[in-house]
């Protein structure tokens, strides 16, 4: 299971980083989502991988699974979800206003040219 989880994290991070570095906004969003999945798995794994044990410390039990990473993952999922929703809105607005889904807002460097003319 250790191999499965760790290779899962690795593949997700690799794909996420690759996608985030793309020039189109949609792959960037997917890449960010993959990175957040990877980190959720990692946090989960950092509580040590224990199967079939309650997340409660009790004197009657000899083993338990660490409940804290589960709470952390829950928080991380909520935040990542909110952030994904936000960035979708921002990128959609950017697309509607500039007519391009390039991360720079335009492909031919129109804005950049504008900037250079205006001395920015």
């Amino acid at each position: 299971m250790e191999l499965l989880i760790s290779s899962g994290v690795g593949v997700l991070v690799a794909s996420g980083v690759y996608l985030v570095l793309r020039a189109r906004t949609f792959p960037v969003i997917v890449g960010l989502a993959l990175l957040s999945y990877a980190v959720n798995l990692l946090i989960f794994g950092m509580g040590r991988l224990v199967i079939d044990r309650p997340p409660i410390l009790s004197l009657h039990l000899d083993a338990y699974t660490d409940p804290l990473p589960q709470a952390l993952v829950l928080t991380a999922i909520v935040i990542a979800f909110g952030m994904t929703a936000l960035i979708v809105v921002i990128i959609l607005r950017s697309f509607l206003e500039t007519g391009s889904d390039h991360v720079d807002g335009d492909e031919e460097g129109r804005l950049t040219e504008l900037d250079e003319r205006s001395g920015r």
Binding site: T25, L32, I90, E97, T98, V103
Partner: peptide
């Protein structure tokens, strides 16, 4: 908003989301 602010905003948000991760 304006197009220039949106472009800078997109970069700002993406960079910070990667940072948060």
């Amino acid at each position: 908003v304006g197009p220039r602010r949106l472009r800078a905003g997109t970069h700002y948000v993406v960079v910070n989301l990667v940072g948060s991760t």
